[in-house]
Nucleic acid binder design. Structure first.
Lengths: 152, 152
DNA sequence: AAGTAAATGCAACAATGTTGCGTTTAAGAT
DNA sequence: ATCTTAAACGCAACATTGTTGCATTTACTT
């Protein structure tokens, strides 16, 4: 479906900045930090970017996650989320080397039993290690200048 | 073992502030935010508290975790951690109502297989919902050991 | 093409965390 | 017990991340 239409369907105006952000999130399926997006779209105002991400989250277009450093990241919603209450129950992967964060859509969060009087509402599963690209670099001793493609 | 000695064994001086913080973390087995500790120990300087927590973490006395809001929290290490490289592989529980965070020492993070070229180094498992105390406030007839389905 | 609510840009503020530096103190040595 | 000194502390200043108020601009409806 058209990106413009997807944004409008959530009751939001499809401004140029919103189209750029949404297109990038849709294209890459990565969880971006605010800093990464800011670097990618230099002409989008800092505050506007915060508001776009907040609006997208409230609209159910993107979901917010935290990486191993506790930094906020945003990724596209794969299932149609009904507004603020997201149903993203997949696992995320955070690369220790390049810092990028991946949505593993195919991997569901596992079932887990916990003792005591806790009432479970949901869970977050964050796996960390090295992504494929960083694996290959260290394993095969490739020159580091090939990393420049990697967004930190 | 004596709290003073445990701190000294890590090469740190057992100052009054450090003893207070370490004693509280040991006593409660909860993961405290900086704000919670600051409120608890009003006479410990803000910066000193940051440094105490950092020193404890580097020494392997406490481990750092993030709650569902992405806020930093610190909890006592149950296993003897060899310095900065922690081996805390248990599950954490964050109460949506009171905001407190619990270390579920008895619950290990589950095994999980992920596709692709990812090399897994570890994982964080954060479960959220209502803690026993908050449960009891809203509904009194919930069996405490009942295991609920994990949804997200 | 015009009207209007929504979105933007800017400045200021707030929360959280870090750094530099002079002073104080814990803990081993005398 | 006192001395010595590296470690720890307290304070101020700075850095980063995120929020709010408000005047201006723009997307979308009619």
């Amino acid at each position: 479906m058209d990106i413009v239409q997807q944004i409008r369907d959530k009751g939001l105006k499809a401004t140029p900045a919103r189209q750029l952000v949404y297109a990038e999130l849709t294209r890459s399926h990565m969880a971006y930090s605010h800093a990464e997006l800011e670097a990618l779209f230099l002409d989008i105002d800092r505050v506007t970017l915060y508001r776009i991400l907040k609006d997208f989250e409230d609209a159910g277009l993107v979901h917010k996650v935290f990486d191993t450093q506790g930094s906020t990241r945003f990724a596209i919603c794969h299932h149609t989320c009904p507004g603020k209450h997201h149903a993203e129950n997949h696992v995320h992967f955070n690369c220790n080397d390049c810092g990028r964060m991946f949505c593993l859509q195919a991997v569901q969060t596992p079932e887990i039993n916990i003792p005591g009087g806790f009432r479970v509402a949901g869970m977050h599963t964050l796996i960390y290690g090295s992504c494929e690209k960083c694996n290959q670099l260290t394993d095969k001793n490739e020159p580091t200048d090939k990393i420049q493609e990697v967004i930190v």
